[in-house]
Simulated assay, not measured.
Amino acid sequence: MRHIPNALCILRMLLVVPIAWLLNAGEYKLTLWVFAFAGFTDGLDGFLAKRCGWMSELGKVLDPLADKILLVSVFIILAVLDIVPAWLAATAVLRDVTITAGAISYNALYGYPHGNPTVISKINTLCQIAYLLLAVAAKAGEWCPEVALMILGALVFVTTVVSGIDYVVVWSRKAVEASRQQRGLTG
C-alpha cells in the first residue's frame, strides 16, 4: 500500500500522452476529464503520503517530476494550439527549467538537495492546474467567464514568477553555504 502515492505519480506522467493526443484531436471535453483526473492524483498522492506515512525518497523525486511533465506539456500544447498565451506558457516552462537546472547543478556540486516544495510553489501548482482546466473548459464550450480566465492567468503569472524567484534565492543561499562548508569556511 505504501507504493500507492508513487504509482499515482507515475500514472500522472503516463496521462500526459492521452491528454496530448486528445488536445491535438480537438477532444476538449474528454481532455477536461482526463486532465482533471490527473490534477486530482496530484493532491491525492500527497494526501496519502502524508496521512498514511507513505512518504519516500522516490516520491520526493517523482511528485515534482510528474507535476513538471504534466504542466509543462499541457502548457506547451495549449500555447501551440493558441488556447493559452505563449508568453504565459513560456513563463511557466522557464520557471520549471530554471528549477530543474538548479536542482541538477546543486546535486552535481553539493549532493542531493533534499528540498521540499514551498507554500508559494504549492499555490503556483494549484493555480496552474486550475488555469489550464479553465482554459480547456472554455475551449470545450463549458461555462467559463472570460474575466475568470484572465484573473486566474494573472494569478498564474504572479505565482510562477514569485515561486521561481523564491527557489533561486533560497537555493542560491543554500549553495553558498554548502560551498563554504566544502571549503571549511563555516563560521
Rank of each mutant, 00 (worst) to 15 (best):
E177P: 02
K122G: 03
T125Y: 03
L70G: 11
K60S: 10
Y106D: 09
V84R: 05
V168E: 00
R95A: 06
I123P: 05
Q182M: 13
C144R: 03
L133F: 03
A135P: 01
I77S: 01
S73F: 08
A148Y: 00
G111W: 06
A20Y: 04
L132Y: 12
A154H: 12
G141F: 00
G53C: 03
I69R: 04
C52S: 08
A103R: 10
L8D: 01
I123W: 02
R183Q: 15
L71Y: 10
R180E: 15
S105E: 04
G111M: 07
L185N: 08
Q181H: 14
I120Y: 02
I10C: 07
Y28A: 12
R183P: 10
I151N: 02
L14R: 04
L149P: 01
A135F: 00
M1K: 05
L30P: 13
L81Q: 15
L15N: 02
L78I: 06
R95C: 06
E27A: 15
I123A: 11
T186I: 10
P85L: 11
A137Y: 05
E57N: 13
L8M: 08
D82S: 12
V84H: 07
T159K: 13
V147S: 09
D67G: 06
T41R: 04
K68A: 12
A79N: 07
Y28C: 02
L62V: 08
A154R: 12
G53Q: 01
T160Y: 08
V93A: 12
C144Y: 00
L71S: 03
L48K: 04
I129L: 14
A138D: 00
A108D: 09
K122I: 06
